[in-house]
Design a protein around this nucleic acid. Structure first.
Lengths: 138, 138
DNA sequence: GTTAGTTAGTTAGTTCTTACCTAACATTTT
DNA sequence: AAAATGTTAGGTAAGAACTAACTAACTAAC
């Protein structure tokens, strides 16, 4: 019982550091200025790199004007770029900028930073041990 | 380098299980039907148990009608109860229902479930070891 | 090589929802 | 009577969607 509370509080501390790493990324890319919907869409975007407006509308189940609006905002925010197709001037390809990718991959980047920090605090031996312990949980 | 990737993927698996626990709680209390603001306010509520409308308005920096509206919705959702004061019939005390508390404490409950699950997968010895390892991270 | 029809994306204007607000009010207490 | 508590009515601003109507560009038929 005491063990349980110990694990709980140590785990909380561990998670607090993970949250810190998350906030670093949020600050770096100014993510708090975006709405949740926008972040959600940037993540979807990241799975559909180099799509057209129409394709994206279909994939996200939104109307084309909605995509147009959304893309306009994202271009202003320097998250997305638009590039006209060579063989068909009606068509535009969309892709994420570095900033856009950073936002879309917030969790991965934060987790990587966090793991690096964990690694720096532990010896090789400790790390192997931690891997062993964590992989026992299912 | 290999160790790093190993730790990363094992950690991801670990976090996936944590997320599962979170979703269990979200499903249990139907939390996905609420807006983020509502969840935020339930959390604030949880820190101000047995306040009046006016006190809450002041604490949250909102107008009294906003609180009235919010409380009305929460009562419909069975998250909050209202009780008239005995000595002053103008005054109403507000408090969270069990459901309301469950939502306000989503993270704690999910973390507790998760830790319990971790505990079930590890021996006493493993747990002590894990506590030791996690507390080395700062 | 026009013409007719289609496709890609944009613009304009509308609707709905959330999350607030102020002003006016009824009830109760002091 | 004055002050306080909470409610009602009505309004605003922002976000996230929509439909309808448009231009520009392409394709195929004649």
């Amino acid at each position: 019982m005491k063990e349980y509370h110990n694990l709980f509080s140590v785990f909380n501390g561990f998670m607090r550091i993970k949250t810190e790493c998350r906030f670093c990324v949020i600050d770096k890319y100014n993510i708090s200025k975006l709405t949740l919907k926008q972040i959600e869409y940037l993540k979807k975007f990241d799975e559909h790199e180099y799509v057209t407006i129409s394709q994206l509308a279909e994939d996200l189940n939104l109307s084309k004007p909605s995509i147009t609006e959304m893309v306009k905002k994202f271009i202003q925010l320097d998250c997305v770029k638009k590039e006209q197709c060579d063989h068909d001037a009606r068509v535009y390809y969309l892709f994420l900028t570095e900033k856009g990718k950073g936002i879309a991959r917030l969790e991965q980047i934060a987790d990587e930073d966090f793991i690096r920090r964990v690694e720096n605090c532990l010896s090789e031996e400790d790390i192997s041990l931690l891997i062993e312990l964590l992989s026992k949980v299912f």
